[in-house]
């Protein structure tokens, strides 16, 4: 049975790229365009993992992680924080907020898949 992944990013091209990579590897992917949108998605369905960007309109990644992790549906769901190298202190904040770890942009498809495999199993 395929794993369901939520991809949260305000860039449609990036979302699509990540989604296509994951779908190509057999994952089920749902996209959200920012933190608020993501909160609606996680309330409606259970995910095996969440990938989220930080800089987004309406609600940023950190606030989303904090809110998600304070809800029952956020328990036990691994969150991977997508950051860029210039956001050093954000990574620690993301971890403190409940992210399992981070991934530095840019990453290639192989890296994305290997991270997902480690987070949710192949």
């Amino acid at each position: 049975m395929s794993r369901r992944i939520l991809v949260v990013d305000d860039s449609p091209s990036l979302r699509r790229m990540i989604a296509m990579t994951l779908k190509g590897a057999g994952y089920d992917v749902v996209e959200a365009e920012d933190g608020l949108d993501a909160l609606e998605r996680v309330a409606a369905a259970r995910f095996d993992a969440v990938l989220t960007d930080q800089n987004m309109p309406r609600m940023d990644g950190l606030s989303f992680i904090r809110e998600f992790k304070s809800r029952p549906e956020g328990q036990g769901i691994p969150v991977v924080f997508l950051s860029t190298e210039s956001e050093g202190e954000l990574k620690d904040k993301a971890r403190a907020a409940g992210a399992l770890g981070w991934m530095t942009k840019p990453f290639d498809q192989a890296k994305l898949l290997s991270v997902m495999a480690r987070v949710v199993g192949a």
Binding site: S11, S13, L14, M17, N55, P57, T84, K105, P106
Partner: peptide, 13 residues
């Protein structure tokens, strides 16, 4: 934010 998104997506593409 525009710069940040440009950097992120640019790198990815």
């Amino acid at each position: 934010r525009d710069l940040h998104t440009l950097k992120g997506t640019g790198g990815m593409f």
